[in-house]
């Protein structure tokens, strides 16, 4: 039998993760409704001032995605702990880094999908307008989802084996993600409000560098995290 290389193994594992996600759609649905509820909570907490809500829309979008990401990341390693399937994966003759790449990509795809569902909702309930071209918004969503997914997968793997994992994951993850949150929220706000000063590109640059750095770190360190 041919042993798949890094990319081949990543592709197979990614397909497995996404298939699992698709077969149990109840988890995706729960995630979507969780973030919708979060968006509603933000709106109620800040009162009925539409102008104020509209100005904060970029921030709410990413906070909703961030809060949902903690649930989805925890879940993505909980299914591996069940029936000790992570042990099984480690025994497969595939590089451990393929597990990182596939897990992080699967989480990024999930978060991207979630963000793409939430944007039209923001347009509807907060009356925001997408001023900049749609590809720019898509670029922000992709980079933002990637930024949460890489450190999230690394810390998700760590936290899933510790005690009090539900508290530990956000405690480890949120401080790390602050630069990504700043860049993603700021650039999304520019998409909604218009960008007369041309700042979007520099925020995207920051977000892109964050992605590069943390995907590289995760790629390098993940095998040590799951070793026995």
């Amino acid at each position: 039998m041919k042993v798949p290389g890094l990319l081949g193994a990543t592709w197979i594992l990614l397909r497995k993760d996404l298939l699992l996600e698709w077969r149990s759609r109840s988890r995706i649905n729960a995630l979507i409704f969780f973030s919708l509820a979060t968006l509603l909570l933000f709106s109620f907490a800040l009162g009925p001032d539409t102008a104020l809500l509209r100005r904060g829309a970029g921030g709410y979008l990413w906070l909703a995605v961030l809060l949902a990401s903690v649930l989805s990341l925890g879940e993505s390693f909980r299914v591996e702990r069940e029936n000790a399937s992570l042990e099984g994966l480690r025994l497969v003759p595939a590089p451990a880094r393929a597990i990182f790449l596939s897990k992080a990509l699967a989480n990024a795809v999930l978060l991207l999908g979630l963000a793409m569902v939430l944007v039209p909702v923001l347009v509807a309930i907060l009356d925001v307008r997408v001023v900049l071209p749609l590809p720019t918004l898509l670029e922000i969503l992709v980079l933002g989802a990637l930024a949460i997914a890489a450190p999230g997968t690394l810390h998700g793997a760590i936290a899933s084996h510790a005690r009090a994992r539900d508290v530990l994951l956000p405690l480890l993850l949120f401080p790390i993600l602050i630069p990504a949150l700043v860049a993603a929220a700021k650039s999304t706000a520019l998409v909604f409000d218009g960008d007369p000063m041309g700042q979007v590109d520099s925020w995207l640059g920051l977000l892109g560098s964050f992605d590069l750095l943390y995907w590289a770190l995760g790629f390098a360190l993940f095998p040590r995290v799951i070793e026995e």
């Binding site: 450190p151 760590i158 630069p179 750095l213 360190l221 995290v225």
Partner: peptide
């Protein structure tokens, strides 16, 4: 695990 977490934090503070 804490070595990994320590590296991740140290990289983050300058950003």
């Amino acid at each position: 695990w804490s070595a990994v977490a320590g590296i991740v934090i140290a990289v983050d503070v300058p950003i």
